[in-house]
């Protein structure tokens, strides 16, 4: 929460410094940005952009969570799969999602699917990594607790493995979301009929610095809000329950 306020303040500060530094008429100013935001929301443009981006990230992230979850589970469960995909997952995860953009354009052309592809590959591997490591690193002692109580294979998974892996799984999802969000913004800059990235490009094309900064604020706000209020709060609860400090 605190961090959110701090980053917002920082963004506004940066915007005002830029405004002060430049004397040109169309340079951004806090007042200009505020006016632009008010106008954008009143006309419904920004709500539509927010909605379009939210829809894309929701679809992309859901897909990434499912695929990444499956990839992580397969790697945790089967040693050959881990041997084969393990280093690849770790390596690809470190790749900035923007690097997938050219691939996306090659394979899918300029279109909705290219943007979605970027989001999915951008976040998929971070999720897979969290799921894989969370499942694989369940303390042997806790596994043995399940065994001595005679749990079935299924109960062992639902009552020991998953709850024990939950903090790592959540961390992976959070990381994946944040990578996916960045990938989406990059994708929308290149192609989108609507969305925050598209509004950013529109601002640039119109030479309207106020709009560019206003949209940047919106992107920052949505990103931080989901990160802190969504994942952050869930993570905090899960960790506090276990007597672990949140990172």
């Amino acid at each position: 929460m605190k961090t959110k306020h701090r980053s917002l303040a920082l963004a506004i500060f940066a915007a005002s410094v830029l405004a002060a530094a430049s004397a040109e008429a169309d340079s951004p100013s806090p007042a200009g940005i505020a006016r632009n935001l008010a106008h954008g929301f009143a006309s419904g443009d920004y709500l539509r952009a927010l909605g379009a981006s939210a829809l894309r990230i929701a679809a992309g992230f859901t897909l990434a969570a499912l695929l990444g979850g499956a990839l992580g589970i397969l790697q945790a469960a089967f040693t050959p799969v881990r041997r084969l995909c393990g280093p690849l997952t770790t390596g690809v995860q470190a790749l900035p999602a923007v690097c997938w953009l050219p691939v996306a354009l090659l394979w899918f052309g300029r279109g909705e699917s290219a943007v979605l592809f970027c989001v999915v590959v951008g976040s998929l591997f971070a999720v897979a990594l969290g799921v894989r490591d969370g499942l694989a690193q369940v303390p042997p002692l806790l596994r043995r607790v399940g065994q001595t109580f005679g749990l079935s294979r299924w109960s062992q998974i639902t009552r020991i493995t998953i709850p024990a892996a939950l903090p790592a799984i959540l961390a992976g999802l959070k990381q994946g979301w944040s990578f996916g969000w960045r990938a989406l913004m990059a994708g929308e800059l290149i192609y989108a009929t609507a969305g925050l990235g598209r509004s950013l490009t529109a601002g640039r094309e119109a030479g309207d610095a106020n709009q560019v900064f206003a949209v940047m604020l919106l992107i920052l706000f949505l990103g931080v809000a989901v990160d802190r209020l969504g994942f952050g709060l869930i993570e905090k609860r899960v960790l506090a329950k276990r007597g672990l400090a949140s990172a």
């Binding site: 002692l141 806790l142 043995r144 607790v145 065994q147 001595t148 109580f149 005679g150 009552r159 020991i160 709850p163 024990a164 939950l166 899960v238 329950k241 276990r242 007597g243």
Partner: peptide
């Protein structure tokens, strides 16, 4: 053949499940 609740093990570390309350831990089996 394998572990089971007829021979219950108490470990050197208490090995309680950290995500459950004390009551839930006691009711685990």
């Amino acid at each position: 053949q394998g572990a089971g609740p007829d021979r219950l093990v108490i470990f050197q570390e208490p090995a309680l499940l950290p995500w459950l309350t004390v009551a839930e831990n006691i009711g685990f089996g």
